[in-house]
Computed example of a mutant assay.
Amino acid sequence: MKVKICGMKYPDNILEVGSLLPHYMGFIFWEKSSRYFDGVIPELPKSIKKVGVFVNESTKVILAKAQKYNLQAIQLHGHESVEFCQELKNKIDNTIEIIKVLSVDDSFDFDVLKLFETVCDYFLFDTKGKLPGGNGTTFDWKVLEKYPSNKPFFLSGGIGIEEMEAVKEIAKTNLPLYAIDVNSKFEIEPGLKNIEKLDSFKNNLKTLNL
């Protein structure tokens, strides 16, 4: 089970989190976010993939940020169309992963996934809320029983240490759960992560043999 720690903001904290060796580290390039990143990413272990998180941004800006920050993945967290994703896929380096976010509630229509199958590398399921992300609440993971695809996905939305048992249960299923994405439940303040809580979370995942 891979771990993505999102919403990083402060250089010293980025280095501390980097020492835990998460598989992915997310930087939010949406200016309205309290976790908006516009700084310098310190040098990180090469095993950590840097993810740029964008909300309804132009391909021009995404490509510029990908080059500036040497991103290994792009997370599309807005209402990006299939055509937009295809255009981006055609323009970026083919080694950069595209993660398409879908905001989920009890009435989510999984049929929309079919349209995005060929234009992204992963899906990410987050809780539908007032903000594009970072709402700090979980959705009912039972809706994922309807997941019709074999494409691996990230699970996000208010996941903290309290959700470990639920993570364990969903990991036992045949769903292609690829990674757990954490953010606000591990923060001291927006963008500043609690290292001890993150370390405990990662160690708990290891004990589950995920």
Rank of each mutant, 00 (worst) to 15 (best):
C85D: 06
N94D: 13
Q67D: 13
P45N: 10
I74D: 05
K128C: 07
I5F: 03
I5Y: 00
G39A: 03
G7R: 01
K32S: 14
I159C: 05
T207D: 04
Q72T: 04
G157R: 03
D111G: 15
E97I: 13
K68R: 11
V104N: 05
I180E: 06
S149A: 15
V17R: 02
V55S: 00
K197L: 13
T59Q: 08
W30H: 14
V82S: 00
G157H: 04
L21K: 04
C85R: 05
S34M: 05
Y178Q: 09
I98G: 08
D93I: 11
F29I: 00
E43G: 08
D93C: 14
P176I: 15
N94R: 07
E31Y: 02
N150E: 14
L44Q: 10
P45T: 00
V53S: 11
N204Q: 13
S34I: 08
E80C: 03
G129F: 00
D109N: 14
C85P: 04
A171S: 11
V3C: 07
W30Q: 00
V3D: 00
G52K: 09
E31F: 01
S200F: 13
D105A: 06
I98Y: 10
L124R: 10
L115G: 10
S184V: 07
A73Y: 07
H77F: 13
K206L: 12
F153G: 04
L192R: 06
N56I: 06
I5A: 04
D105E: 10
N94C: 06
Q86I: 06
F186L: 06
K60D: 15
K68A: 08
K49I: 13
K100I: 09
G158N: 04
V101H: 10
D12G: 12
F153N: 04
E196V: 02
V55L: 07
P176L: 01
V182T: 05
L20H: 03
L208P: 07
E83H: 10
V112R: 09
A171M: 14
D106P: 05
S103V: 06
D199A: 10
L144W: 11
E83P: 14
V167E: 01
N174V: 03
G136D: 11
F84H: 00
R35I: 01
I195K: 01
E169L: 06
L208M: 07
K91I: 07
A179H: 05
F116G: 01
N183H: 08
K130D: 11
D199F: 08
K32R: 15
I5W: 09
L192S: 01
T59R: 15
D106H: 09
G160V: 12
K130N: 12
I188M: 00
E189F: 02
N13E: 11
G134E: 13
I41S: 02
V119P: 01
Q86D: 12
E196L: 01
T207G: 00
D12S: 13
D121I: 01
K32F: 10
